[in-house]
Design a protein around this nucleic acid. Sequence first.
DNA 1: CTTTTTAAG
DNA 2: CTTAGAAAG
Lengths: 259, 259
Amino acid sequence: MPTIIATVNVNGVRAAAGKGMLAWLAATEADIVCLQETRATDEQTRAALAPALADGWSLALAEPEAKGRAGVGILSRRAPQEVRIGFGSKEFDASGRYLEADFDDVTVASVYVHSGDVGTPRQDEKYRFMAELGAYLTGRGGEFVVSGDWNIAPSELDIKNWKGNLKSAGFLPQERAWIDELLAAGYVDVVRRLHPGVEGPYSWWSYRGRAFDNDSGWRIDYQLARGDLAARAKQAVVERAAAYDQRWSDHAPVTVQYR
Amino acid sequence: MPTIIATVNVNGVRAAAGKGMLAWLAATEADIVCLQETRATDEQTRAALAPALADGWSLALAEPEAKGRAGVGILSRRAPQEVRIGFGSKEFDASGRYLEADFDDVTVASVYVHSGDVGTPRQDEKYRFMAELGAYLTGRGGEFVVSGDWNIAPSELDIKNWKGNLKSAGFLPQERAWIDELLAAGYVDVVRRLHPGVEGPYSWWSYRGRAFDNDSGWRIDYQLARGDLAARAKQAVVERAAAYDQRWSDHAPVTVQYR
DNA sequence: CTTTTTAAG
DNA sequence: CTTAGAAAG
């Protein structure tokens, strides 16, 4: 049976819900939607998404300990069998950055890797998060897909102005090497596999300047799948148009059809 | 010659300018307008009031050291002969809460006494400010008026729900006693003198609830005059209506005509 | 440029 | 309820 999985960083679920996210959700064909940066408590998130929940969507959440920061969730048309918050990390499990949900034969994870500005303590934190998450993911098997905002453009094809960003968080050699390690460990970047050799498709555009109008974006939201699931990916789209009518986040949904 | 002096706490000059303060300024008959809580640097304030300055208004400012806090100013149709920031206080002169300007035979001061929530360090700070300002004002003579936001309702007539606010900052016995001392020292609350024995007229209404619609306000903005100037006060109005069309502050201008 | 908290009112 | 700054993105 086909399963459509979408992932989108909503940049504040309360703001997004008020600006068009609910309309997008009502129209999407996705069965499962991974959310990042809800930036709200579980209670606030359920209130913001109340119309969708009334519509039958099930919602699993990893509440962030820090108010207004991070927060991931998984919406699904049918409730998952099991939900797990975190990946066994003392430092990060309560930070609202990783959530897994089991659906019949596949497990879906929603991940938020923070931006990690260069030269700040947030950069070291990002590397610690990468180290712990990488160890967990490479040791994991089964029918599994991790979808989310990785805040890393894997290659020069994944960022409009790559030359100007060689020293920017999100395109540092160490960060790209980390993604390479995941791919070497058996994960498939299904969006890139379905769009080989082309620039983009980008999934994030800064709110500054004319970045969105000029398509001066980054491909930092993607789905890494392993097992048979990776081979089942048959179509991947970045829903730039859906965001265009009325932009409700600086990221666009990245939707993949698994047949 | 008659002189009309207005005072208004603008609660952020940048926000106020965008919401109707400039239209009020273009229509007022006041010759001098004392401003409180500009909450901006001198540069930001001049930018926000640029149309008024282009219209010929002169502007003197006491820039607050803390960004986004306090800040007082004096607008006048003719430039003052001299301007003085502060009243000789080590702690408060740089805090943007007191400014004097000399106009021919009279001196006009714009003062901002902060709210000073009970049980916080801001309460002690308010009392220190009151002590220093009180000493300065009682020692001062001449044709002089101090206009501003005193954040103290002098009597039961000056606050709608006085019984419910006996323990609230702005209506504490110690605060009211301080105003009484200023009156005993020769200052005249000209608004009250011109509106004896009536409730109000209030000059501030909380943004919370229906305070403005119910006229559940406080009279905390007033002009204390001394010398002949006090006797010259012939009309005092709170420009509640001016604020009503499109409220641009939680305070209303308090305008007095000195003949 | 935007979201959310915070301090202050 | 509102302003403005701060942190984060």
